[in-house]
């Protein structure tokens, strides 16, 4: 039996005005039909930092993440506000396609298209009206370099992306996202299908990428959260229980539920 924890006692940090935030949510709630999957999440995400969302399966962290670039449209009902550059992007009349250009997403399972490596990256650029051959070439190169994949694939850009290893495919997916030059990169358990060596490569890539992008990563792996993130939010049964700097969370958790989760004596 899962231990009962009070949802009243939470420790969620807020940021002072001088910290610039890439995104912020206010009273974000998610419903799958009658199922209340996410309760009142108020989180801010500092610019050019990696924020990790941790928690057990079914804690609502992926649901929350998918809401941030409106990938839950037509799947779930999302209420509350999502602030991005001073605009509430959870309003129905915003252009979701434009949002997703600025807030990119990488999924749990590497999901490159059944096209060549080059085509995988060029696809979204073309869809957004970028046509110049030179510019496309350049974007392919810079994004692959950004995702630390360039050296491995520069001679085989026209080979099928499906021939790459899992770790390479995931880095290609990251490259594909950053080719759009987004502000924010959302990653939904990007390493859960990868072996440890590929995981390390992806993590190194993320640490490099945070110089240019604000990153929010959902992970099951607490060591990963500790390794890569600066801020860390702990989700439990659809509630944000604790949100603190990562160092604090892992050395000095503020509330019992977090303490139990990170020490493994959960439930």
């Amino acid at each position: 039996m899962l231990k009962q924890y009070s949802f009243e006692k939470t420790a969620v940090q807020t940021f002072p005005d001088n910290v610039s935030l890439a995104m912020r949510t206010e009273n974000l709630q998610v419903f799958y039909g009658a199922n209340h999957a996410m309760h009142d999440a108020d989180l801010g995400f500092p610019k050019n930092q990696i924020t990790a969302l941790i928690g057990a399966s079914g804690s609502g962290k992926s649901t929350y993440l998918r809401s941030l670039n409106r990938m839950n449209d037509n799947i779930a009902t999302v209420t509350g506000k999502i602030w991005y550059h001073g605009v509430d992007i959870n309003e129905p009349n915003v252009n979701i396609y434009e949002i997703r250009r600025h807030i990119g997403m990488v999924f749990q399972r590497p999901n490159p298209f059944a096209k060549s490596i080059r085509e995988n990256i060029v696809y979204a650029l073309k869809a957004n009206g970028i046509k110049g051959k030179a510019e496309l070439e350049e974007r392919v190169e810079t994004s692959l370099k950004g995702a630390a994949l360039w050296d491995e694939v520069k001679d085989s850009l026209d080979k099928s992306a499906l021939a790459l290893s899992g770790g390479q495919q995931q880095r290609l997916c990251i490259a594909r996202s950053i080719a759009m030059e987004p502000d924010v990169l959302l990653l939904d358990e990007p390493c859960s299908a990868l072996d440890p060596i590929s995981t390390v490569k992806v993590e190194e890539t993320l640490l490099e990428l945070q110089k240019k992008y604000s990153i929010i990563i959902v992970t099951h792996n607490m060591q990963q959260a500790a390794r890569v993130s600066s801020q860390c939010a702990f989700f439990h049964l659809g509630h944000v229980m604790e949100y603190t700097p990562t160092a604090t969370m892992f050395s000095n958790p503020q509330i019992p539920v977090t303490q139990d989760y990170i020490s493994g004596s959960f439930g």
Partner: peptide, 21 residues
């Protein structure tokens, strides 16, 4: 399904996703 999701997450419209992916 993940082809569709990947395409939408890149900011492609529904029509672009249908026609190109």
């Amino acid at each position: 399904r993940h082809y569709k999701e990947a395409s939408l997450a890149l900011g492609a419209t529904r029509w672009q996703t249908v026609s190109r992916v």
